[in-house]
């Protein structure tokens, strides 16, 4: 996973994505890519993994950080 390591912790890219969601609220993948400077394909892939890990939730076509996600970057 590009955003979560095998120990279940966010990678540097993962932290950037989670922080972007924490600081900007509900965001599209495109907005996260713009804010973080991470390539859009990596953001899309990372968000998919983080939804599966319940760090992020998909609300229609946008993403929101969960309580579990916030705890991981505190």
């Amino acid at each position: 996973m590009p955003c979560i390591n095998p120990e279940g912790k966010p990678t540097e890219t993962g932290k950037k994505v989670l922080q972007a969601l924490r600081d900007n609220g509900l965001c599209s993948a495109e907005k996260v890519a713009e804010v973080t400077g991470v390539a859009l394909f990596r953001v899309r892939s990372g968000l998919r993994d983080m939804v599966e890990a319940e760090l992020v939730e998909l609300v229609e076509d946008k993403y929101n950080i969960t309580e579990k996600g916030i705890k991981l970057i505190e």
Binding site: M1, C3, L40, F41, R42, R44, S45, D49
Partner: peptide, 13 residues
């Protein structure tokens, strides 16, 4: 090497 990727992840590029 950058995680699991789908063709759709590249949509728009």
């Amino acid at each position: 090497t950058h995680g699991n990727l789908k063709l759709d992840d590249f949509k728009g590029s």
